[in-house]
Design a protein around this nucleic acid. Structure first.
Length: 572
DNA sequence: GCCGTTTTCGGCCCGACTGTTTTCAGTCG
């Protein structure tokens, strides 16, 4: 039973208890526990085996016992019993915007709902009107909610949302009426998927800004158009919310809208203990209701005696405690990165020549860039044979000789074959500067076999990095299962780095696994997996994963100057 | 259901908005 599965059960229990109108704090306890389990950097099964479940924040005697039952039997009696009291359709109805537990239960009790479609028909024929507390408006809202529900609750990858938000912000930034502008929400926290884009502004001419906002070129529909808040739906289905706030509230609003919710709740509780109250308008002295800060986020943290917490860490997974002790990590920054370890050229399935890649990387200020084309077994990608690889190495050496400022590293993205063998012989690997190895076939194999393949590759003394370790492609292919404890252990022992692949659909390793790798003492390596020059820009996505994984400069291979890097990897 | 250098019981984050109501419940972020 995996962490997210246990978390899902607890979340569903919370939903069910809400329907039962249970003690809201009990419900909160389940949600809190679910959230903490999901963000654990260890398998909850392992923790259960060690008997230290109660050390997880929000897990007490009762929940620890429930987790143990789930881990041992794969089931939870309490959950099953609870679930049997309510048909699944109630939970489904609750996921419609504007319908909460009360309405869901009311609708079910009244109509014995079987499907969302049935609910839609009832609403269209005005059968819902007249139920206690429901009139035309609510009925309309339910229909609207069903529409949104059907449109898909799916979140979009960070790599899609970020350029859209940046484009909107750049468009507004230059306007003289705008004093401050920033995106907030999960986008600012750089979560790997985003539901909608929140933008915050201070302005002397709110009305003009709002008018300009709702008439942006890509608007498909205006969902709301007010003085301080407007929402639009873009043609590609993304919702963007714009809020205008007073300058003296900007920091408080930014903090509030950036979240996460759990982070905010924790801060507010701390504030209470210190005799303050936090809202989106500022932080106030409880007794006098006097605002003591609000203009800048950092001032609010200061009142709570905390250092500034970078948005990427704001998940309430220990960052507040660390800030209190003054032990926040100094997260890796874009400037720290000196090169890209994963780039394909026209020699295999990339679009550009070695010289073009060299120039593009130089323009980005890199000191080195690794050419890592596919190897022969990956026929679809035009993988290189040993002889071609040798030819490419010569070519790279030649280019390096006649040019300065940046070094091309002769590398490869070598296939780890289905049976665990490596695609290129050791004597050729020995000639390369850097070797990354990756799985591209046999994804459906057992956890044990896949783990063994990767470990086998790591034990080869020429393999420096394992690329996209879990093979996931967001929206297309799930991560395959691996025994991470084992992989991290061997990675550390063999001095092999694990990649944070910055390709937008991959982001692999992800934030949690990166954090866990760091805790085990593993080094991480950033690579864009670029096939075209503009994809080199994706490195920023990799950095945000690294930052969400609490990684510092010292945890990342790409921060080493060329000579130090070569020395380090040659020691393997 | 959790939690405790003020507590083992009595607390548990905060506000807006909406739609339905005559003071508030439900939903949301």
């Amino acid at each position: 039973m995996k962490n997210f599965e246990v978390a899902a059960i607890f979340n569903e229990i919370a939903d069910l208890l809400e329907i039962k109108d249970e003690n809201p704090f009990r419900i909160r306890a389940y949600r809190k526990a679910a959230q903490n389990i999901e963000s654990l950097t260890q398998d909850v099964e392992e923790i259960a085996k060690k008997g230290t479940l109660k050390e997880i924040p929000g897990i007490g005697k009762d929940l620890a016992a429930k987790i143990e039952e789930i881990v041992k039997t794969g089931k939870l009696k309490f959950y099953r019993k609870l679930k049997s009291q309510f048909p699944g359709i109630i939970l489904e109805t609750m996921s419609i915007p504007s319908i909460g537990p009360k309405t869901a239960k009311l609708l079910y009790d009244k109509f014995k709902l079987k499907s969302i479609d049935q609910l839609e028909r009832l609403a269209r024929s005005h059968k819902i009107c007249g139920l206690p507390g429901i009139k035309e408006k609510t009925e309309e809202n339910i229909l609207r909610g069903i529409e949104l529900f059907k449109k898909g609750k799916e979140r979009m990858p960070l790599g899609v949302a970020l350029p859209i938000a940046t484009e909107i912000i750049n468009r507004f930034k230059s306007l003289p009426e705008i004093k401050k502008i920033n995106y907030a929400g999960s986008l600012r926290r750089m979560k790997e998927t985003i539901r909608d884009i929140d933008i915050l502004i201070t302005s002397s001419k709110p009305k003009r800004i709002m008018d300009a906002f709702v008439s942006l070129p890509r608007v498909k529909e205006i969902l709301a158009h007010g003085e301080t808040k407007s929402s639009i739906l873009l043609k590609d289905g993304i919702q963007v919310d714009l809020r205008i706030v007073e300058p003296e509230c900007f920091g408080a609003a930014l903090l509030y809208f950036t979240g996460s919710k759990a982070h905010n709740i924790h801060l507010r509780k701390m504030a209470n203990d210190l005799g303050y109250k936090i809202s989106e308008y500022g932080i106030f002295k409880e007794r006098t209701n006097k605002r003591v800060a609000g203009k800048e986020e950092v001032d609010i943290y200061k009142v709570l005696k905390l250092g500034f917490i970078p948005p990427e860490l704001r998940e309430d997974t220990g960052e507040i405690e660390m800030a209190r002790k003054g032990k926040l990590p100094s997260l890796v920054k874009e400037d720290d990165i000196l090169g890209d370890f994963h780039v394909h050229s026209e020699w295999s399935d990339g679009a550009h020549s070695l010289e073009e890649i060299r120039e593009a990387a130089k323009k980005r200020g890199y000191k080195y860039v690794a050419i890592t084309d596919h190897t022969k077994s990956l026929v679809v990608a035009g993988g290189l044979k040993e002889s071609e690889l040798k030819k490419q190495i010569k070519e790279i050496r030649k280019i390096n000789k006649k040019s300065k400022g940046i070094t091309l590293l002769a590398g490869t993205e070598m296939d780890i074959l289905s049976d665990g063998r490596l695609d290129i012989s050791d004597n050729v690997l020995a000639e390369l500067d850097i070797v990354i190895a990756a799985i591209h076939t046999g994804f459906k194999q057992s956890k044990e076999r896949l783990t063994k393949r990767i470990i086998g590759a790591m034990r080869n003394k020429y393999v420096h990095i394992i690329a996209h370790p879990t093979g996931r492609l967001m929206g297309t292919r799930d991560a395959y299962e691996l025994d991470f404890e084992e992989i991290f252990k061997v990675a550390k022992d063999t001095n092999t780095a694990l990649e944070i692949n910055a390709f937008p659909q991959r982001l692999d390793l992800n934030d949690i696994n990166s954090k866990r790798a760091k805790e085990t003492g593993v080094t991480l390596a950033l690579g864009t997996d670029s096939h075209t020059l503009d994809q080199l820009d994706n490195l920023g996505l990799g950095i945000s994963v690294a930052r969400r994984g609490w990684l510092e400069k010292k945890d990342i291979l790409n921060t080493l100057p060329l000579q130090t890097l070569l020395k380090k990897i040659s020691k393997k």
